[in-house]
Design a protein around this nucleic acid. Structure first.
Lengths: 98, 98
DNA sequence: CAATAATATTCAAATATTGTAATATTACAA
DNA sequence: TTGTAATATTACAATATTTGAATATTATTG
């Protein structure tokens, strides 16, 4: 109904985007996010790929998840993550960080 | 001469991008960066606009500067900042925060 | 050379993030 | 059930970030 966003809504939107950028602002998380850009991937493979402790990877996945950048999908015992925010996906593709 | 980037260079490039995203991943800094997107602006105006202590703003400007996102330009006593990284500028314009 | 205005830097306290070992949960098979 | 593989959560030490007052620097004017 409202044509314009209220100042409060704008601040919230900005805070949300800042949270997402912050989540991507860590080498490991940026690498994970870029890796998930093309194909979804299960946690175990990410752990193997990056060679970091499982708990460390899981925490970073949690950060990206809470920022609304990725989303988990259970496939039996495994959990598959994929990028869910389209705006962020475009952004990552543009950055072209391998 | 090298057709491909080495793994080390890629890691460096990723780390650099992560640093930039991290710099933008703070509400005040994101607001500053978005504000500078269209028009350059001097520090005093930014301070007045955001209503935060001068030292706080100056520190945030320093963070954005070190990340290579903005660049200062002395004009007499004043310092004018503007967005300098084109990739980041496009990214910010896309995010359409505000 | 003052004096002043604009900006940057330093410092310390409060708070947040990071990394990882240990532990818990979850889903499935036997 | 019990066992096991995959993932998440917890706990906590180490480290980093954030803030704002105080102070320093820089450029300009008189």
């Amino acid at each position: 109904m409202t044509a314009r966003r209220t100042a409060g809504q704008q601040a919230q939107q900005l805070a949300r985007r800042a949270e997402q950028l912050k989540a991507l602002g860590h080498p490991v998380r940026l690498r994970i996010a870029c890796g998930l850009l093309r194909h979804r991937c299960q946690v175990g493979r990410i752990v193997a790929q990056l060679g970091l402790p499982q708990s460390t990877i899981s925490q970073h996945l949690g950060t990206l998840r809470e920022a609304g950048i990725i989303v988990p999908e259970r496939r039996g015992v495994c959990v598959c993550y994929r990028v869910t925010d389209r705006e962020i996906a475009r952004l990552l593709a543009r950055l072209a960080v391998e």
